[in-house]
Design a protein around this nucleic acid. Structure first.
Lengths: 226, 226, 226, 226
DNA sequence: AATGAATGAGAGTTCATTCAT
DNA sequence: CATGAATGAACTCTCATTCAT
């Protein structure tokens, strides 16, 4: 049984009143579920766990969601919506590619710091059915492609050094996704400071066309580690 | 049931002989298990799945491993051993901190491209018992600390720009861990090329003390995405 | 599968109604379980056996009991409760120690003739977990100590001949526990008659300070049987 | 795994030598098995447990015994042989019935204090197959009948008060069987002293024809405890 | 004579999901 | 609308027993 953090209480109250907005209840389920899923993983969380946390019964859950998967898919949708929205707003800007990417890093960092953003990155979409998985992966792929496009635009306008945009995107995304594993909202570390270092370090990697000190050497695999 | 890729066949033959190679069989179990775990996740893989893949029965598995968790722990051990070994060899070198970090990036990339390395990063240690989890997390933490030490040594010898080594380590590790999600051994992309770009881009991020173009701006959170 | 004695039928009907009598159902499980446990032993009785007997499915049992052990512990509790209650009522009486012990013998005999009493004596508490075993054994020990106290009070008031109360208690309890192995409720023998002889014979053993005919002889171990 | 008490070591040594007496080995298995069975129960003891304790492999056990049940049956046989032998020797004596019963009590007490005697009483013959159970129960029944005969002879010669020999036998046997549950060989209590009190108290119960103090009262079931 | 390896059968337990109320 | 109750399917693990060597 997951411990009931004080932060979850508001959602429990929602269900006390019978005639509340059903959409609000649905949302309450999602907010509670995403927290537990993040804490214990989707697979190790039973519908009973979610229901208990919300102070309702299991079949009540099935009133709002057809099945467990639908909850997870909805969480993914909310999370990816945040990212889509951010991307849309960045794409609309009149900036250099590098600046756009920098904005993406900053924005993505903040999204990942939130529950739904973290869920997109941390929850295992392998738990989904074929249909659900296709849907979720399509959205993830789309995000990846839009990030690549941002990088490509930077290469074109010269603000970013020539490189394989696909791998660059993986590096950027991967670095930020890592946050989902260690960042705790209650962390003493200031989110802005973290995001700052992410932007600085990753953006620098994009601008540096070539690194004389490194380029000359035989860096790769002087020994084998496999 | 997982599909039987041709690559798994050799292990199946091992078990035909009743007597020979008990150690080889244990290893064969690990090689088969890690593949299936990576494909379907540890939780969604049943002991029957592993046994079937090896052409033996479920209880036979319990000859070689006390329980399912022991298989997972052993996989983690093999994976982290690879990383430890690499770190040890890098630490013994007489190089600048930056060069050491560059070597780490290259080596880590290659390890993550292998099954056991990928397993360390991708398999969910939340499935482990308390004892197992403590063990595995201790090893992961140790790796993280050794990477930070590498970065710190670079800051001290001036080869790396001053920064928060903790976050820098997260960025490096995160970027490489990301590979575990998309890299496929059969991928047409050349591993050396990938590793090369990882080294170039991430190392560049470490050397660039400040980026005039970015430093002056209000990069962080001009809008809110949460 | 245990044979379905007619006596078990009533409990089967209880579970036909979906909603009613949740407490009654829990009790019905206990009554059915104790019978099967006594017939086949706890270990050789599967949850499926119990469920089948009640005309429900195995998981339904888990609605009423957390696990198999909880059923056993509950049976022990009900059984020892009967004994505790009897002891309490005897202790409250104003009688000689001998009379109290005689009442105990009579009462204990009747309790052991019942299912839950027999269960306390016959079911193997070695099947329990450490925690469960500690609990059950503590209750058994307490009963033993209260019986010893009864005997000691008889020795003090002179109604019982001086002896080692500990061993006397073992003899009394052992003799009665033996009943659990041979007494069948459907037995033609009258329970009152049985209890009568138990009281007469065991109480006589307590009053007879010394037996001239036996005291003079070398009764013990004239030969060795080991 | 059962702890290896020092006392078990001798049997382990037996198997070190290859050409020892096979009968001696068979016996060694029985001596080891009975101890473990008494400690953990027959059902909770695996063939591996027995083999490990003897420092041999499981199939080696199957060399000496056809199956697990045969070990148990053999243990029962050895135990009941002890009792049969004692009964034979007592029956051959020229004594009053009471004296014979007193000798039985003393002798039985000592047998129950030993491993094989304790096994007859404590091990659950319900674990046996139908055939084995029939065999073992027949022997137990025979012992019971011979004890009844002893009592009956005492009633006839006037040394024992008139009573239901069947129940008297149950009381005697039950009281002594109880020992199997609490008597520990290492116990500080002197076995002779224990046997002495058993004889005194139980024999007294047999001689006392009627107890005026108890006979007059309504001892039985003034209250109901069921 | 003795072993390491393997197996078939079965146990307890969990859980997403669905009735019947 | 909401609930207590129930289920089927699955999974991990155990063990007496038997091959093949």
């Amino acid at each position: 049984m997951p411990k009931q953090s004080a932060a979850l209480q508001p959602h429990r109250r929602l269900f006390a009143d019978r005639r509340r907005n059903p959409d609000a209840k649905r949302e309450a389920v999602l907010h509670t579920a995403v927290r537990i899923f993040l804490e214990r993983s989707y697979a190790r969380t039973s519908m009973d766990d979610v229901a208990t946390q919300l102070n309702i019964t299991k079949p009540a859950l099935y009133h709002y969601f057809r099945n467990k998967e639908e909850i997870l898919v909805e969480i993914y949708r909310l999370g990816t919506d945040l990212i889509d929205e951010m991307l849309g707003s960045i794409e609309a800007d009149e900036k250099t590619g590098l600046d756009k990417v920098a904005d993406f890093i900053a924005g993505y960092t903040r999204i990942i710091a939130g529950d739904f953003g973290r869920a997109v990155v941390r929850l295992d979409d392998g738990e989904l059915s074929k249909a659900g998985r296709r849907l979720v992966r399509a959205r993830k792929r789309e995000i990846d492609h839009r990030l690549r496009a941002l990088i490509d635009s930077g290469i074109e306008d010269g603000s970013i050094a020539s490189c394989d945009a696909k791998i660059a995107a993986f590096i950027l995304a991967g670095a930020i996704h890592g946050m989902a594993s260690w960042y705790k909202p209650a962390s003493p570390m200031d989110l802005a400071a973290i995001a700052g270092q992410y932007v600085r370090m990753l953006a620098a990697g994009l601008t540096a066309g070539d690194l004389p000190e490194l380029a000359g050497r035989q860096t790769i695999a002087p020994r084998r580690f496999e």
